[in-house]
Design a protein around this nucleic acid. Structure first.
Length: 302
DNA sequence: GAACCGTGGTG
DNA sequence: TCACCAAGGTT
């Protein structure tokens, strides 16, 4: 197989990745044997755009409270949003709750192992579906996150950054996966891990990189292909900030609703405040009734 | 494909 | 200080 890869002009990335991962993999909760598909799924939801160090304590608390999808599905969405606390992007909490309901209703309470079935769940996209299938069930698929895309862009394509996610990324990853599913899973995890701790966006640690010898980007003298991502919108004064402030009030008061007029009443921009509340209601993250605002599914007294 | 969606750590 | 960044997904 190695000869075949070289004939195609592809260096063997799998072998050094597996060796490096064996020595350097972090001991993360969801990598423990027997962590379970539900635990893996919850961890993947939480890890969507939230750093590992912030996720770990929340993950433990979540699984302690809701050890199964059915347990979560039996609770109100409001409780999911409240338990989510300050992890950010609270719609993920809502989506995770919806996914739990779907798992209960469509899959008898068992997290599906089929990628298409996973993709059909709320809040699960290309990355998460494959991550669950591969890391929880040992299926053989390419798992491509932003770390992996950066690693492949550099090592294979010689670019400092990757463009937007595409089918090509999955194909590129497939090309370096070993045949055996267990090995393929390790390569998937190793590529992500390498991107997370060595081949980082800002200051890559090429001195300790197991792929340095074969890295096209390094060989080309680290060109800055900077087809970079769009600048993240300013947070201060943003709608996101306003929404976050509203939701924090609701979380802190829950299960009690809050007088609508008192929700971030001192917000500098009253129009923005109103729009934030309306958009949260539209998103299903809040409910208004009788002049009171609450998290979704917390019945308003009276 | 671009815009949008939270929050906190960091160089 | 502040812009960047973080195991994405949906619209």
């Amino acid at each position: 197989m190695l000869a075949e890869l070289r004939l195609n002009g592809m260096p063997d990335l799998a072998t050094p990745l597996i060796a490096w991962y064996g020595e350097n993999a972090r001991d993360l909760p969801w990598r423990r044997p027997g962590f379970g598909a539900w635990g893996v799924l919850v961890s993947e939801f939480m890890l969507q755009q939230t750093p590992v160090t912030r996720v770990i304590p929340h993950l433990q608390a979540w699984l302690m409270r809701w050890p199964t999808p059915t347990a979560l599905a039996a609770d109100a969405p409001a409780e999911a949003v409240r338990q989510w606390a300050n992890l950010g992007y609270p719609r993920r909490a809502l989506w995770l709750h919806r996914a739990a309901v779907e798992i209960r209703d469509r899959h008898s309470g068992v997290v599906p192992r089929d990628v298409d079935a996973l993709l059909a769940l709320t809040g699960i996209g290309d990355y998460t579906a494959r991550a669950v299938a591969v890391f929880a069930y040992g299926e053989r698929h390419p798992v491509v996150d932003t770390n992996t895309r950066r690693v492949l862009s550099r090592a294979v394509d010689g670019r400092s950054q990757s463009g937007s996610p595409s089918r090509r990324d999955l194909d590129a990853m497939t090309r370096i996966l070993p045949e055996h599913p267990a090995d393929a899973a390790i390569v998937n995890a190793a590529a992500m891990e390498l991107g997370a701790v060595v081949c980082t966006a800002r200051a890559p640690k090429c001195k300790v990189c197991p792929l340095a010898d074969q890295c096209a980007w390094r060989a080309a003298g680290y060109p800055d292909t900077g087809d970079g991502r769009r600048r993240q919108a300013r947070y201060e004064g943003s709608n996101r900030q306003a929404r976050g402030a509203v939701l924090k009030v609701l979380r802190d008061a829950a299960p009690q609703p809050v007088d609508l007029a008192q929700v971030i009443a001192d917000w500098p921009d009253a129009l923005q405040r109103d729009r934030a509340i309306d958009s949260l209601i539209a998103d299903g993250l809040a409910e208004a009734s009788g002049g009171l605002l609450s998290l979704p599914g917390h019945r308003v007294a009276g």
